[in-house]
């Protein structure tokens, strides 16, 4: 939009913003279920993060043209949610099939998380948010990349923290999910503090 700033700068700023200041999990609350459910061990958390990142980027890559070149010309933009969720569900199936064929070891590592990705809000949330707010294709890809990176970083950090929390003497009532949520709240405060960056 702004003619004085080259597109690449806006693109990179948008990625940084979507990763940190606008973090999916801690600020925008997408994908809390898988965040809480899978973040108790480091390795599965990392695999989950990579799988979600992959599907998010591909889903945005498919959904944006689908909305702007098919749904809008056809006069049915209100069908977006139905179409997106179908795209995401079939993408997840497809990713599963491809991984199974070419890398059985990888499939073993995150095959069980694949069905969980369909119901991860981050994937649908990014695709829907991109077209709802009328982003350009470049910026919606920046949004998808930044969101994926943010999810991966936060779920990995959280898993590291939680694996240490297990060894701590936490009050009995706070064990497990409650203390994880409070830790997430404290991490979220730290990210809110980043809001001034780039200003």
């Amino acid at each position: 939009m702004n003619a004085t700033v080259p597109f690449i700068v806006t693109f990179l700023l948008a990625i940084v913003n979507a990763t940190l200041m606008d973090n999916v999990v801690l600020i925008r609350f997408y994908g809390i279920c898988s965040f809480v459910g899978v973040s108790n061990k480091v390795k599965p958390a990392f695999s989950m993060g990579v799988a979600v990142a992959f599907v998010t980027i591909f889903a945005s890559l498919v959904c944006w043209p689908l909305y702007n070149f098919v749904l809008v010309p056809a006069g049915i933009p209100f069908m977006d949610t139905v179409v997106y969720i179908l795209v995401i569900a079939s993408l997840v199936q497809l990713v599963g099939l491809v991984i199974k064929k070419y890398s059985p070891a990888l499939y073993k590592a995150f095959g069980i998380y694949l069905p969980l990705i369909t119901t991860n809000c981050a994937v649908l949330g990014v695709a829907q948010g991109n077209t709802d707010s009328g982003l350009s294709f470049g910026l919606s890809m920046a949004q998808a990349i930044g969101t994926s990176a943010g999810f991966l970083i936060i779920i990995f950090l959280m898993a590291c923290i939680r694996s240490r929390l297990d060894a701590m003497n936490v009050p009995k009532a706070f064990k497990g999910i409650p203390i994880a949520l409070i830790v997430a709240g404290i991490m979220s405060i730290a990210l809110i503090g980043l809001g001034g960056i780039g200003s």
């Binding site: 939009m1 702004n2 806006t10 940084v16 913003n17 200041m21 606008d22 707010s133 982003l135 910026l139």
Partner: peptide, 8 residues
């Protein structure tokens, strides 16, 4: 209506 890296 305007847009920057953070939104519109």
């Amino acid at each position: 209506s305007g847009r920057n890296a953070y939104g519109a």
